[in-house]
Computed example of a mutant assay.
Amino acid sequence: MRTTYMAKPGEVERKWYVIDAADIELGRLSTVVASILRGKNKPTFTPNVDTGDNVIVINAAKVALSGRKASRKIYYHHTGYLGGIKQISAGKLREVNPQRLVETSVKGMLPHGTLGHKIFLKLHVYAGADHKHEAQKPEKLDIKNLI
């Protein structure tokens, strides 16, 4: 009788992937990135273990927003002070801090808790085409075929 395989944290082999976000819609990019970070693309996926890979997203400033999301999608955060709720549109956030736009989108698709935080730390987002992870020898991943 075979039993279900459950991955153990020490057995997981991690790879590094580079994804170019230029001209890819934010939601489609985020779903693929969240899936790879979580490890759902591997046959050894285990829901309660971090089995995912590291992901580097480059050209976050060139990510596409479909429809009128650039002006109508609003992100909120609170400063912690009375009346301290702040808001910024997705288009303005893409101009000011494109890394945060991608990070916020991906973070919302990950589990909420300690495992999700551990998974989120494997995401590295850069606004331009350069990144500092050449030593890890990341593989270039063309996600236009995965969408």
Results as ranks from 00 to 15, higher is better:
L101G: 11
Q136P: 05
L65D: 03
H131G: 02
P98E: 06
I147F: 14
A127Q: 01
M1H: 06
A127D: 05
Y75L: 04
E103Q: 11
N97W: 05
S71W: 04
D142G: 07
K132F: 07
V63S: 08
K140I: 10
K92H: 08
V12D: 04
H117P: 00
G67L: 07
I85K: 01
K144Q: 12
E134L: 09
N97F: 06
N97Y: 10
M109F: 11
G84P: 09
G52F: 07
A70S: 08
N59D: 03
G83R: 08
I85H: 00
L93T: 10
G116P: 06
N54R: 11
V125P: 05
K140C: 00
V55I: 15
L123V: 03
N54T: 05
H124I: 04
A7H: 03
S105M: 14
R2L: 10
L101Q: 13
G116C: 08
I143Q: 08
P9M: 07
G113Y: 05
M6E: 15
V96P: 01
R94W: 10
L121V: 05
G128T: 06
P9T: 02
K62I: 01
P43Y: 10
Y76Q: 00
P9A: 08
W16H: 06
T31H: 13
D23F: 13
H77F: 09
I147T: 10
H77D: 11
D142R: 02
I36P: 04
T44P: 00
L26M: 13
G27M: 06
W16C: 07
G91F: 02
W16G: 07
R72T: 11
L121A: 06
H77P: 00
N54D: 08
